[in-house]
Amino acid sequence: MSIESGHRTETVSPSTGPLPGQRYAARAEGVSKVYGSGETRVTALDGVDAGFVRGELTAVMGPSGSGKSTLMQCVAGLDRVTEGRVWIGEQELTGLPERALTELRRDRVGFVFQSFNLLPTLNAKENITLPADLAGRTLDTDWVEQVIDTLGLRPRLAHRPGELSGGQQQRVACARALVGRPELILADEPTGNLDSRAAGEVLGLLRRSVDDLGQTIALVTHDPAAAAHADRVLFLLDGRVVTTLRAPSAPDVLETMAGLEQDALGSASAAGEDTRETGR
């Protein structure tokens, strides 16, 4: 039961954190998520406690159906929890009305998804400033320019997504997330559709924005090489956080994952995300 002990030592203890907003950019406490009811009832998250430390890159790993995407969607305010509580900074999300949740997402969370990150009718620059434009907020121009230059997007600003490579599109998505200086950036499999060189670029970029800019990032991935860029890695299995590694190497991650998958094979079911409606 070494896994269990690791779980206990590293995750937040809800009752003890005196000012959690100072240490954690985002935090989940006893979060459960249940889809459907009766025979089709699926428990995607089962009492998860997790915290995302400010100024760190936290990776969330786990086999398919472990609940890692669900956890991140709940933490980022994309989805609502069935039970438990969630905070972004000091703001509790649970019970927040729809409109307030939308505005919180817009103003305090940045997103980078696996695919389909950009609006096809807007050019790169317009995509980068979209959340601010939707909010009617003016961005810090110097900061925007700095981000654009850092990400090497200056020559591409007038291009539409259709005219950009996958790596370039993902860099535009990163820029969109960064320019708002959000509390938390959620990157959900951001390298899933990229070749290894482009993936390396994007991961390096995320690492630098943590190191140089003090950004907090949550990275959902199942690629051990990607997870190796993280300060901490949370491992999920069957809707629970089962272990945590600190600044691991890729082989460490690989080994832990292999152990988890052994467990998964042994367990009765591996439901979770796969049963969700995924469109056509």
């Binding site: 994309l78 729809e98 409109r99 939308t102 505005e103 997402r105 817009r106 103003d107 997103f111 998804f113 389909f116 990150n117 950009l118 609006l119 096809p120 979209l130 959340p131 939707l134 909010a135 969109r176 469109g279």
Partner: peptide, 17 residues
């Protein structure tokens, strides 16, 4: 454009918008 609208909502477009 389901996905597009979803993306817009994710990055902060309100229902009214």
């Amino acid at each position: 454009r389901r996905r597009e609208i979803g993306l817009l909502r994710a990055v902060g477009a309100t229902r009214a918008q």
